[in-house]
Amino acid sequence: MENRNSTSDFILLGLLVNNKATGVVFAGIFTIFAVAVTANLVMIFLIKVDSRLHTPMYFLLSQLSIMDTLFICTTVPKLLVDMVSKEKTISFVACGIQIFLYLTMIGSEFFLLGLMAYDRYVAVCNPLRYPVLMNRRVCLLLAAGAWFGGSLDGFLLTPVTMTFPYCGSRSINHFFCEIPAVLRLACADTSLYETLMYSCCVLMLLIPISIISTSYTLILLTVHRMRSVEGRRKAFTTCSSHLTVVSIFYGAAFYNYVLPQSFHTPEQDKVVSAFYTMVTPMLNPLIYSLRNKDVMGAFKKIFAQCLSIQNVSTIYA
């Protein structure tokens, strides 16, 4: 095996290897990327400018949109460039940065989705104490905790991954530097590290899942005791969007990071990774906006104001 410097470039083989439908796939991925970034930025903008959305739930939702925007921008632009370029290399440093960013974003989103479930629990089960229990200071601490937890995962795993010696083939059978795909190229025993990483991922999943399970169990008990049909409907509407996002995101993460590697193939890993790095950042804002009257109301209000300004400009032009 040919020894090479550990700082040499890696080669990303991409999402689809030797596929003739590259143009169609490129168009599809670019569309998903454009919709995801636009939808999340619009969500952030609406929450910022509409005073009716200045509540803890929407503050946490704006943090989710920021995470999703950074998450999809970590992997997809490089993928799109590689699909139209002959050079599909990524430097050793850039690979490490990509690993750190995606670990930080996915870890932060794990924790944030758990904290959003706690917010729903307080809103449904303790509505009178909600302004006190979820005041601005608490919201800022919760958001900071989610970001810190995710970045801690990145700071712990990235340096260890990049200190392994990589020799021989530099071709990563993936469309971005995901740790399991990178470790396949290491010319050293990584079994202990993979076990520790597996334990870390399980722990990071168990903490928010425990919060989500407990919160929604208490919510269901509270809703069951409600006599008002309207109250039940509002509670289910409020929680259903969050549960949909949680199911999609955690399902993909469970496959990639909890299911033993013996059940994986490189092709399946790439498909699942594409799902949670591209599709979920696009679906999250659409799920929350299309099923939320407040968000749609804010959008219609801003849109009407823009049309009004445009009409005035046309009259005076």
Rank of each mutant, 00 (worst) to 15 (best):
E109R: 00
G96S: 08
A94Y: 10
A304W: 07
G23Q: 02
F110I: 03
L41C: 08
V93I: 15
R129L: 13
M162G: 00
A235V: 11
C73N: 12
S151E: 11
T161W: 00
I212A: 09
A94R: 08
D50P: 00
N256K: 02
R233M: 08
G28N: 02
V272A: 06
A274Y: 07
G231S: 10
T190L: 03
Y193F: 12
V229L: 15
G96L: 08
V312F: 07
F59E: 14
C306K: 08
G23A: 09
F263N: 06
V76T: 13
R129H: 07
S85V: 09
P281K: 06
V223C: 02
C125P: 15
T214M: 15
L112A: 08
I47Y: 06
D189C: 01
Y118Q: 00
Y121C: 04
S308W: 01
S108M: 03
L221H: 05
R136Q: 11
V138S: 08
R120V: 03
I248Q: 04
F164H: 04
D153T: 15
D294L: 05
R233E: 15
S8P: 00
T104R: 12
Q310D: 13
R120M: 10
V223M: 12
Y166P: 02
L307G: 02
M67Q: 13
T214K: 11
L185D: 05
R233T: 10
L259H: 10
R137Y: 04
G14Y: 15
T163S: 12
V246T: 11
N284G: 00
F45N: 10
L103Y: 08
E178A: 13
H174C: 09
S151W: 03
I90S: 01
D68C: 14
Q63Y: 03
A117D: 15
V17K: 06
G107E: 04
H54M: 04
M204I: 06
T277Q: 06
L286N: 07
I99R: 07
L133V: 10
S151K: 07
L142S: 03
A21T: 09
I209M: 13
L61I: 13
S313W: 06
I209V: 13
F110N: 14
D294R: 09
S65T: 09
M162C: 01
P159G: 04
F100K: 05
I29P: 09
T277S: 14
R129K: 08
D153Y: 04
F10L: 14
S65N: 14
N256R: 06
L307K: 14
R227T: 15
